[in-house]
Structures are given as C-alpha cells and as structure tokens.
Design a binder for these strands. Sequence first.
DNA 1: TTTCAAATGAAAATTGTTTCTATTTATCTC
DNA 2: GAGATAAATAGAAACAATTTTCATTTGAAA
Lengths: 147, 147
Amino acid sequence: MKTKFERILRSLNLKSTPKRIAMLEVLDDEQVYLSPEDIWLRLKKRFRTLGLPTVYRNLEGLFEGGVISRVIHPDRKLYYYLCRNEEHHHHFICMSCRRVEDVRFCAERELQEAVRSGIRGKVLSHILQINGLCHACLKKEGTVHVS
Amino acid sequence: MKTKFERILRSLNLKSTPKRIAMLEVLDDEQVYLSPEDIWLRLKKRFRTLGLPTVYRNLEGLFEGGVISRVIHPDRKLYYYLCRNEEHHHHFICMSCRRVEDVRFCAERELQEAVRSGIRGKVLSHILQINGLCHACLKKEGTVHVS
DNA sequence: TTTCAAATGAAAATTGTTTCTATTTATCTC
DNA sequence: GAGATAAATAGAAACAATTTTCATTTGAAA
C-alpha cells in the first residue's frame, strides 16, 4: 500500500526517503509559495539533521521531474519560491499572504499566436506572472506587509 | 549644452557623474541584456577605480527612476540583466546572442482583461517574458550556446 | 570659491546556493 | 529476511552575487 507521494517519487526514479515525502507533504499542504529555507524551517523540527543542501537537491529533482513548479519573487532579490504541480499555467501571486492562484485566462492561445506572429524566432519558454494582492488581503488592508 | 543623458539624470535628481553617464551610454549602445558585471567589465578600462558596488547602486537608481528596465535570466540562477528604457512592454529574449526584442502583441488588453476578470484581487505588477532563439541565431544553428 | 549633500572606492559582511567527501539508507536480489 | 549496491544525506566548506560600512571625493548650488 503506497501513498500518493511514494508513487510519484517512484515514477521519477527517485527513492522514497522520509525527507522527500515530508517535503512533498509540506508543499501539498500549504498552497503558498515557499523558499527552500521556508521548507527547511518547517521540517527541521521533525528531522533534526536535515540540511539545506538536501532541501535544495530535492527541490531541484522534484522540479526537474515536473512534480512541483516555481515562481519568481518580483522584488529586487529574485530568489525562487515553489509550489504546485499541475500542467503549465500561470500564477497570480499575492504579495502579502503569499498565496498563489492559478490563472487560466482564455486569451492564452491568442497570446501565443500574437507573440509568435510578431517574433521571427523560436520560442523556447515563457514566464507570465501576475503579482498583486488577493481578495482576502485587500479586505484586511493595513496589515499588508510585502516580504 | 547638456547631453541627453545629463538631462535624464537631472530629471531624476541624480547627479551627472561621468560614471553614470558612461553606464547609460553602454546600455544605450548595446541593445542586449547586460549583467551588472558585464557593465563593470566594459567600463573599468575607462575608469580604473570603478567598483562593482557603484554599478549596482547606479543600476538600482536608474531602474527606480524608470530609465532602464530589467529582465530575468530564466536559468536556474536568476540574476537580473538590464537594458531598454521605453514604456512598459514585454520582451523576447534570445538565449543565444542575448538580444532583446520588444513584444508589442495586440492581445495585451485582452490579456489584462482576462486576467483581471479571473482574479478577485488587485494586480500590482506582472512579468511577461518570452525566452527563445532569435531569427539570426536560428540560422547559424550549432553555434548556439545558452549562457 | 565655498559649502554640503550625494556619490564613490575599498574592504568586509551578507545571503543564497552549490560542491565535496565520508557515511547512511532505500531498494533490489537472493 | 539478509546482504549488495547505487542513491541520498549531513556537515563543512566553497562559491557567487549583492549589499553594507565608512572614510574620502566630487558635483552643483549658493
């Protein structure tokens, strides 16, 4: 009887270590973007010896495998923060509570077309990220602290 | 008789130092994205004592003032690279020659609309960046080296 | 010219990430 | 279930980009 995460790791040819599973749990539980350090802080109580390099390595592996995705912090310091595991789509990121909403705007195909027709070249990838304040945070104005 | 760059700096309440002017010249001349270090390397022949912190400080100031813009390197290491000075628009970035083309796709407004109608919250900013290979680099295939 | 805030250089500190190596662990095979 | 083996890990150290600090210099306003 394998858990969801064990099956995922298996399919990526990654071993099911307790730490990896715990990382996936954290990312799955909290639907906010988390930095490598955030994840490390959450897990080092449970795993006294967990090191940041391990967190980085595993995030890298999980990202390569397409199990998680990442977004770019729009502030000066552009470290990357991670979450989610669906197919390619875009993100609306709340700068206050860090919650990430998927953006499934129907203009996607038109955008692609427009972009492609205006560019003489090959598109390899694109980044679309919308930064703002979510509905909930807008209401409790004043407490907004963008980090 | 003030030069273009002197007028720009003046309008931002930044002093017209030779180094700032030279930085603007470099960015204006080369229509490719440049890292702080790139700019530093280009200028330290002319200014023996130019330090990287000065380059960082000035880039920051020029960016804040809206005189230059920046793009995000899509590789793992997301340092930022800079260029251009037009109004808000998007970029097609050649991963090989570093050239940046402006993308003025007409679906912009539709995108904005779509995004806004799908999101309950306030949009503060967005990043749209298309990474690929430009027409010229596509032709001389094989020499492509993404850095 | 004098004055003063802004800009700068140089060194050091900070921060985020990666590498290295010896040890441990998950999984495969019997 | 008990080895065998390659992958995963901890811990320390290295690394790279950026920022801070502070004493000195410089641009531009009076």
